[in-house]
Design a protein around this nucleic acid. Structure first.
Lengths: 224, 224
DNA sequence: TATCAATTAGACTGGACAGTCCAGTTTGAT
DNA sequence: ATCAAACTGGACTGTCCAGTCTAATTGATA
């Protein structure tokens, strides 16, 4: 980091670096589109180069191999989704009622996850679990697991202040998570993007899920 | 069906027919193994013939093409699973308490569905939804949908005899189904077969799911 | 303007694969 | 024993694909 070298032209404010970056971005964008659509085996590097409006040689100048490119694209999407989930988290305040908090969390998650892009990613990763098990694990840990952990933390808080009955927060959080996400994701996995419910439907579903969960776990029971 | 012809040698009690059937079965068995492991594109017809201990020519004598064979194998597995689910259904008797019936249903489903074979099928079908949407639809309709419909019928019965509060049986059935199946299937999809819970864990999970569901829907509430 | 890294088009290698063809062999029913 | 259907093995076609090579071009910088 001393003087010259400008290693791969990446840290200059613009100029040659931008050309490299432009190519790279075009390749990544095309790769995402193509891999999501065709899968790892179904996507060809020739098609990729063409869709990226870039020569095949340039693709290989940027990425070691098809597999390396694939892994990088998927890792980027997985990480991006994880960041999106963690973003506008409103941590539970003492005065925020459980129902309100859980509903907000549920809606938030559904809105972020139930998109064609993420459903396609999920399908792809599931289909490639045999070939790339680490992708499945990564998607699980960056998706459901972070959500569940966050909910568990919140539930622990609500148990502490006496709004939720005593129980294992982790188990309860997992139950809540799948109560919310189970039906829509599973349907979307098998039925395709057209099966993704509308926002309105998702919000109604979130409300129902919260209602059921609170019937079982709230201290003050209001069954409707 | 009049006299001779013996169309494809399939309806003779034994003899030539058995040879044809033996080949066919070897091919189907190998195809199932290979397609589940490698996916449609990843499986090669040469590998298939070798694993079936059969010549490539024989494979093409029995099946028109790779795609035809694939579709037939998957359809057979999907149908088989559907039949298994419907099999030992004990229909709800008036005197059978809801909790007992729902617990039995839940355990039954989990035991049937949460096996490596069916989880692999599900992964494969999900991964190929882009290429073969009809397989996804078929798996959905032969799997979750029949379960949900069965549960809905039972719930309608329990509503009628006053053990379950009045509600839309279809919606409630879907909720119950995913409360039971959501967590284990989703984990298995992304984490692989080692993530399939043991029978004991599955049974415990079933109990929990029933408990939560009844908290929200039972007429006589017993929250533990 | 001179320079040099990035990029391009396209030919090429080596291998895989779906599906066909053929000549000869096995099998089982009559 | 005879005969036809089923099967074998392996060669073959046409295609596709990952990855490499080359010679020429572009474009930002100094």
């Amino acid at each position: 980091m001393v003087a010259g070298e400008n290693q791969k032209g990446r840290d200059m404010s613009n100029g040659a670096a931008t050309r490299v970056q432009r190519s790279r971005e075009k390749i990544l964008a095309a790769a995402e589109r193509l891999f999501l659509q065709e899968g790892f085996l179904g996507a060809s590097m020739d098609a990729l180069a063409e869709q990226a409006s870039v020569s095949k040689q340039t693709v290989y100048a940027h990425f070691q191999s098809k597999e390396a490119l694939f892994l990088e694209v998927i890792a980027a999407m997985t990480g991006g989704a994880a960041r999106a989930i963690g973003e506008d988290v409103e941590e539970p305040l003492d005065d925020r009622p459980v129902r309100e908090y859980l509903t907000a969390i549920a809606i938030d998650q559904l809105d972020i996850v139930m998109t064609p892009r993420l459903m396609q990613l999920r399908r792809m990763v599931i289909g490639e679990v045999g070939r790339f098990p680490e992708l499945g694990r990564s998607l699980y840990e960056n998706g459901p697991l972070v959500s569940i952990r966050r909910i568990a933390r919140a539930l622990a808080h609500y148990i502490a202040i006496g709004q939720i009955r005593d129980c294992d927060p982790a188990r309860a959080a997992a139950q809540f998570n799948w109560l919310v996400m189970g039906a829509p994701t599973n349907a979307a996995m098998l039925l395709g993007d057209e099966a993704i419910p509308s926002r309105a439907e998702l919000h109604a579903h979130a409300g129902e899920a919260v209602r059921i969960f609170l019937c079982a776990h709230a201290v003050a029971v209001d069954r409707d």
